Simulated scan of single mutants.
Amino acid sequence: MTSAFKDDLLAGKTAFVAGGTSGINLGIAKRFAALGAKVAVVGRNPEKAANAAREIGGGALGLSADVREYGAIRGAMEQVAQAFGPLDIVVSGAAGNFLAPANGMSANAFRTVVDIDLNGTFNVFRGCYDLLRRPGASLIAITAGQAVNAIPLQIHACAAKAGINQVIRVLAMEWGPDVRVNGISPGPIANTEGMSRLAPDPATREAHYARIAMGRWGEVDEVAECAVFLSSPSASYISGTILDCDGGSQLGDASRRNLGTGLA
């Protein structure tokens, strides 16, 4: 896609992307590197982390740590700071999800998603604070529409994402003016594991497109551009904001526009 940002926008910056070994977060890490940043990605699987670093190129680091374990994620951040210097950009994007009714979900399953998404975001942000370049650091959490829209079979994700939104807002207040804290709420994004599970066949995908105001799924690069913007000088007065990158999907069911304009 055509980008509005100059090629050296992030030159000299250090970016740490938790959950950056696949999907949207890997796309964000690649975009940061393409714009000149020194990038480190962290995931639970050492092999995936190493492969992601090679895919990103430019001397990127791929480290293994579980965001649910504060000591592990803190240790990874210290390695990055030692290798690249103070952290300028930190993205918390590790997530877990599945479809399940509340009555059919174990307490452990609920806790697991909250632990990865919500507790993981706290661990990443709390762990990085004294390693940040201050003032000027930018923190970004990847949240989702479930934070504000109740969705059946998603009680765990709805609870976790709502918590993330409040973490963003509270930290923006506590850590300003030295650190900006924002979130990105992606809608359905093509070529991601989540959407391949939710809409595995063409008929399901076409039906889903019709419900979205823009009539299509988003692209990973479109979310990555949002992350670049929030990390750039253009967003220097933006903090505590959740940026929706969802094609208008949170507005409601756009397929109703096909019913015509007549009033009942």
Rank of each mutant, 00 (worst) to 15 (best):
I155M: 11
S232P: 09
L132I: 02
L259E: 15
A29H: 05
A227Q: 03
Y209K: 11
E206L: 07
A210M: 10
G59T: 00
F5K: 06
A95M: 09
G62K: 03
I56R: 07
Q166H: 15
R68E: 10
G75D: 14
E69H: 12
P46V: 03
V17R: 02
A83M: 01
R126E: 14
Q154M: 15
I151G: 00
A100I: 01
D7I: 09
Y237W: 15
D115A: 14
R256E: 04
F84Q: 08
T2E: 14
F16D: 03
F16S: 02
N119Y: 03
V42F: 00
G240S: 10
V179W: 06
E222P: 14
R126N: 15
I24H: 08
N165Y: 06
S234D: 14
R211F: 02
A254K: 10
N258S: 11
L26Y: 10
A190D: 13
G75V: 11
A141I: 09
T241G: 00
A160L: 02
K13E: 05
D130F: 05
K13V: 02
A203D: 15
V124W: 09
T143M: 08
G194R: 10
I89P: 08
V228L: 12
E219A: 14
V170N: 15
G58Y: 02
D178F: 03
S236G: 13
L243N: 01
G93C: 11
S232R: 12
V113R: 04
Q154G: 05
L87P: 10
G260L: 13
A52D: 00
H156D: 13
I140H: 07
A254V: 06
S92F: 00
P186A: 10
A150I: 12
A83R: 15
L243A: 14
A235E: 05
N182F: 04
R169P: 06
Y209P: 05
F16P: 01
M214E: 12
G62F: 00
F84C: 06
A33F: 10
Q82V: 05
T21R: 01
G57I: 11
V67D: 04
